[in-house]
Design a protein around this nucleic acid. Structure first.
Lengths: 181, 181
DNA sequence: CGTACCTATGCAACTGGTTGCACTGCACCC
DNA sequence: GGGTGCAGTGCAACCAGTTGCATAGGTACG
């Protein structure tokens, strides 16, 4: 149940509408927990039922009204509770590994192309993350508190993407030298 | 829909019962796609409805009967089809990042302990994977075909765990030097 | 002798997340 | 004038995966 808590974190930092949260998630927390707007709207409603957040309707001109959510006392209590609670370490989950594992049962060359495609995609993400790091945290050694934590989360994203790209390179090289084209 | 195909890969290599597949998944493909026995039983039934596998009931003495599944012609066709098809690159999904991101809103020291706990868990997995690599693939440079692909999948697991452990170390160090205990 | 764990399968209920679609209105580009 | 895209919320249906439980005989340990 991390989405609830990811939203609590995000809303504690700054109140916002479902739509805005969805946009924020594309960056930042989204490196570790992606979510669609549907999911976010639904969860926000559930959170309101639980009393963790409240909303106020805000009229805008030229745009549809929005519901701005804000964390309640109970929400802050819940967030601290969750933060202190242990969670299960995650296991990797990537279809590409399954494909590679079955490569010899089909068109190995097609799997190789797929690995290259994923490599490109992850390399792009890596570049995006690195650019954000340079732009938003030019002096990482001086950070502390919330900013430091944000930076470290970004570092996690960078490390994960880097490691995936390196793995793809290893795979491509190994398949190539086996004669796959 | 990778579980179906993971099972097809596994069953193509060797026929087996749901239970056996669950055991096999604990190693090997499980590094990239974990599954519980419930999930496997259910999916096997669905796959049989689709005509991808057939089963024969096998009586055993001293143990319950088992249903041994085997891939059909249609199953092999489906597997090759899927192998040639592109899939979406995955995004990271780890609650720990969410917690870290929210650390300053609760007990940062507790989050630090949690990171250390996850570090230990992932380090253990890393050791397990490395041991398997040494035992099953002592001469990786000489591999090709299915064995090479198996090895590369394992390498992916190793890289992912290594990168996670390193990240945890970075986080622990950073939090420590900010004074968190 | 009881407890606990292994092999083996399965149902039922639930939770979490995705996909497709609908509606409104403005801004921008060709 | 038409298409695209953004801002904003939402329903309904679906798919995937988890959790708890049940059953049943076997082995191993203290």
């Amino acid at each position: 149940m991390a989405l609830e808590h990811a939203l609590l974190v995000s809303l504690t930092e700054r109140e916002g509408s479902g739509y805005e949260l969805a946009r924020r998630f594309d960056r930042s927390i989204g490196y570790f927990w992606a979510a669609t707007h549907q999911q976010i709207y639904r969860v926000l409603r559930r959170m309101e039922e639980s009393g963790w957040v409240t909303h106020t309707e805000v009229a805008q001109d030229g745009r549809p009204d929005k519901k701005v959510y804000r964390v309640s006392k109970a929400g802050r209590v819940e967030l601290t509770r969750w933060l202190a609670e242990p969670i299960e370490p995650t296991t990797l989950r990537d279809e590409l590994g399954v494909k590679l594992r079955g490569a010899s049962l089909g068109d190995t060359a097609a799997v190789l192309r797929e690995v290259e495609r994923h490599r490109a995609e992850h390399a792009t993400r890596l570049e995006v993350y690195r650019r954000i790091a340079r732009r938003d945290f030019p002096k990482p050694a001086k950070l502390n508190g919330r900013e430091l934590h944000q930076y470290l989360v970004l570092r996690g994203g960078i490390r994960a993407e880097k490691s995936f790209v390196d793995w793809c390179d290893e795979v491509v090289q190994a398949l190539r030298s086996e004669g796959v084209r």
